[in-house]
Amino acid sequence: MSNDRAGFEAFVGARTPALTRTAYLLTADAHLAEDLVQSALLKAAEHWGRIHTSAEAYVRRTMYHRQVSWWRRRGDVREHSIEGYDAAHRAPDPDVALSVREALALLTTRQRTVLVLRFFEDLTEQQVADELGISRGSVKSTTRQALERLRRTSPHLAELVEDPA
């Protein structure tokens, strides 16, 4: 039992910053992100001895499911970010990071969640659909709508993407 506990504590210490960054992208709110990570880690702690796959995959999947439950219950509630939340992990150009953060905050919770899973977590459309319990078509349309909104509200971010043509 103490070996399981030590393994769990090591996992929490090593992976909490990365999990929190993902949770922040999902929620766009520092406090909700912390709640989401804590909730997922609590569930992982309860089942730690029975997790036979990747522990990180288990926790991330739990976070996605809980986030979906939250946005289904709340509807499209707009969250507000707290400045300086991720100062230790800020990108080299803080103006760009702030612009991306502000752009993501303009999306609905569902749109932000789909984009984070598709492009930050690099999941396929089908994997996102499976994770969120929605159809593949919903993932495609939500991605399209979110990207259109980003292009419309934050055209300056397009400069960050290299054009392959």
Rank of each mutant, 00 (worst) to 15 (best):
residue 1 M to Q: 09
residue 1 M to T: 10
residue 1 M to V: 10
residue 3 N to Q: 13
residue 6 A to T: 08
residue 7 G to C: 01
residue 8 F to R: 05
residue 10 A to Y: 07
residue 11 F to V: 02
residue 13 G to H: 10
residue 14 A to S: 12
residue 16 T to C: 06
residue 18 A to L: 06
residue 23 A to T: 05
residue 25 L to M: 10
residue 26 L to S: 02
residue 26 L to I: 03
residue 27 T to V: 09
residue 28 A to W: 03
residue 29 D to V: 08
residue 30 A to R: 15
residue 30 A to V: 14
residue 32 L to A: 15
residue 34 E to Q: 15
residue 35 D to A: 12
residue 36 L to P: 04
residue 37 V to G: 04
residue 38 Q to V: 06
residue 38 Q to N: 14
residue 40 A to Y: 01
residue 45 A to P: 00
residue 47 H to D: 15
residue 58 Y to V: 01
residue 59 V to H: 04
residue 59 V to P: 03
residue 61 R to G: 14
residue 62 T to A: 11
residue 63 M to N: 02
residue 66 R to E: 11
residue 66 R to N: 12
residue 68 V to G: 06
residue 71 W to G: 00
residue 72 R to E: 09
residue 73 R to S: 11
residue 74 R to H: 13
residue 78 R to Y: 05
residue 81 S to G: 15
residue 86 D to H: 14
residue 88 A to M: 11
residue 93 D to S: 12
residue 94 P to H: 04
residue 94 P to C: 02
residue 95 D to T: 11
residue 96 V to G: 05
residue 96 V to F: 06
residue 96 V to C: 04
residue 97 A to T: 01
residue 102 E to V: 02
residue 103 A to G: 05
residue 104 L to T: 02
residue 104 L to A: 03
residue 105 A to Q: 09
residue 108 T to R: 02
residue 109 T to I: 07
residue 110 R to G: 11
residue 110 R to H: 11
residue 112 R to D: 01
residue 113 T to G: 03
residue 113 T to A: 10
residue 115 L to Y: 02
residue 116 V to P: 01
residue 117 L to T: 07
residue 119 F to A: 00
residue 119 F to C: 00
residue 122 D to S: 13
residue 126 Q to T: 12
residue 130 D to E: 15
residue 132 L to T: 03
residue 135 S to C: 08
residue 137 G to F: 06
residue 137 G to L: 12
residue 139 V to T: 04
residue 140 K to F: 04
residue 141 S to N: 11
residue 144 R to V: 08
residue 145 Q to H: 11
residue 145 Q to F: 07
residue 146 A to V: 01
residue 148 E to K: 13
residue 149 R to L: 05
residue 150 L to M: 03
residue 151 R to P: 00
residue 156 H to A: 15
residue 157 L to E: 02
residue 160 L to C: 08
residue 162 E to F: 04
residue 162 E to H: 09
residue 163 D to M: 09
residue 164 P to V: 01
